[in-house]
Amino acid sequence: VAARRGKEADCHKLLKKLLGAVPGPGRAQLHDPEAGFWMGPEQWMIGAPSESHEDLAERLKGLLGDAASVTEQTGAWVCFDVIGPAMQDMCERLCSVPIRQMQAGDAQRTVIHHLGCFVIRRTAADHIRILGPRASAGSLHHALVATAQALDTGSYGSDAPA
């Protein structure tokens, strides 16, 4: 979603109606079933379960009207949830986000395995969501698995139990 010039206030009002709040820089609104995070000035990524929101882009176009432009992104992104007690150690090895300072709803753009990604801190203390380019899903998955395996074997010298 990108607010159109001169329609920013209208876009904010409608996004607030949908999400409960409009995410600002570095933030996500972890609303259910729709959620969204800030991507840039007057730009947000909005997501929802595909089972119930297969037509999300069309719904957003209907809701936002001429207040915003909506670009379908369903096929462009892959989503990985990293959950568990070693999540912070894993995240520190994957990218440069300040994971130990991040709170629920924080969202950061970063690079993982040479790929531009977003890391969103979820409500559970041991949970992050990583969004990356779908075209590189295999490479991103490989980086996640290799890092998790390295943590498990202690090859990174982690403080986490091996």
Score class of each variant (00 low, 15 high):
Gly75Lys: 06
Ile99His: 13
Gly6Arg: 10
Ile112Gly: 07
Val145Asn: 12
Ile99Met: 09
Leu60Ser: 01
Arg122Met: 13
Lys13Leu: 14
Val22Arg: 03
Cys117Pro: 05
Glu34Ala: 15
Ser136His: 09
Gly84Arg: 06
Gly157Arg: 07
Gly65Ser: 15
Pro133Asn: 15
Met87Gly: 05
Ala68Tyr: 08
Asp89Ile: 06
Leu63Ile: 15
Leu19Cys: 05
Arg100Thr: 14
Ser52Ile: 11
Gly20Leu: 00
Ile130Phe: 01
Gln73Phe: 01
Lys16Pro: 06
Asp32Ala: 09
Gly65His: 09
Ala146Glu: 15
Tyr156Asn: 05
Glu8Thr: 10
Ala137Asp: 06
Gln73Pro: 01
Gly75Tyr: 05
Val97Gly: 08
Cys79Leu: 11
Gln73Val: 03
Trp38Cys: 01
Leu15His: 00
Ile46His: 06
Thr71Ser: 12
Gly105Glu: 07
Cys117His: 02
Asp32Val: 06
Glu92Lys: 12
Pro98Ser: 05
Asp32Gln: 10
Ile120Ser: 00
Val119Met: 07
Asp10Leu: 14
Pro49Asn: 04
Asp159Ser: 15
Gly62Gln: 13
Val82Tyr: 01
Cys95Val: 06
His12Ile: 06
Leu19Tyr: 03
Thr74Tyr: 04
Met39Glu: 11
Gln43Trp: 02
Val78Gly: 13
Pro23Gly: 03
Gly138Phe: 05
Ser50Val: 07
Met87Ala: 09
Gly20Thr: 00
Gly138Tyr: 04
Cys11Asp: 02
Leu15Thr: 01
Gly105Asp: 11
Pro85His: 14
Arg93Met: 03
Ala146Ile: 10
Ser139Ile: 02
Val119Asp: 05
Asp106Gly: 01
Asp126Glu: 15
Pro49His: 00
Ala48Cys: 04
Ile99Phe: 08
Gly47Leu: 10
Asp126Gln: 13
Gly65Ala: 15
Gln29Glu: 15
Leu56Gly: 14
Ala124Ile: 03
Ala124Glu: 10
Leu18His: 00
Asp66His: 10
Pro133Glu: 12
Pro25Trp: 00
Gly116Gln: 09
Gly105Phe: 07
Thr74Ser: 15
Lys61Met: 11
Leu140Met: 02
Gly105Pro: 12
Trp77Leu: 15
Ser50Gln: 08
Ala35Trp: 00
Phe118His: 05
Arg134Ala: 15
Arg59Gly: 08
Met39Tyr: 03
Thr123Ala: 10
Asp81Val: 11
Arg93Tyr: 01
Ala68Asp: 10
Ala135Gln: 12
Gly105Met: 12
Lys7Cys: 12
Arg122His: 05
His31Leu: 02
Ile46Pro: 09
Ile130Cys: 01
Glu8Arg: 11
Ser139Phe: 01
Glu72Tyr: 02
Asp66Met: 08
Leu60Arg: 01
Asp89Phe: 10
His127Ile: 12
Ile83Leu: 14
Phe37Ala: 03
Ala150Phe: 07
Ser139Gln: 08
Asp106Phe: 00
Glu92Arg: 12
Thr123Leu: 08
Glu51Cys: 01
His114Trp: 13
His127Met: 10
Ser69Val: 11
Ala135Tyr: 14
Gly154Leu: 07
Ala143Gln: 04
Val82Phe: 04
Ala21Met: 03
Gly47Asn: 05
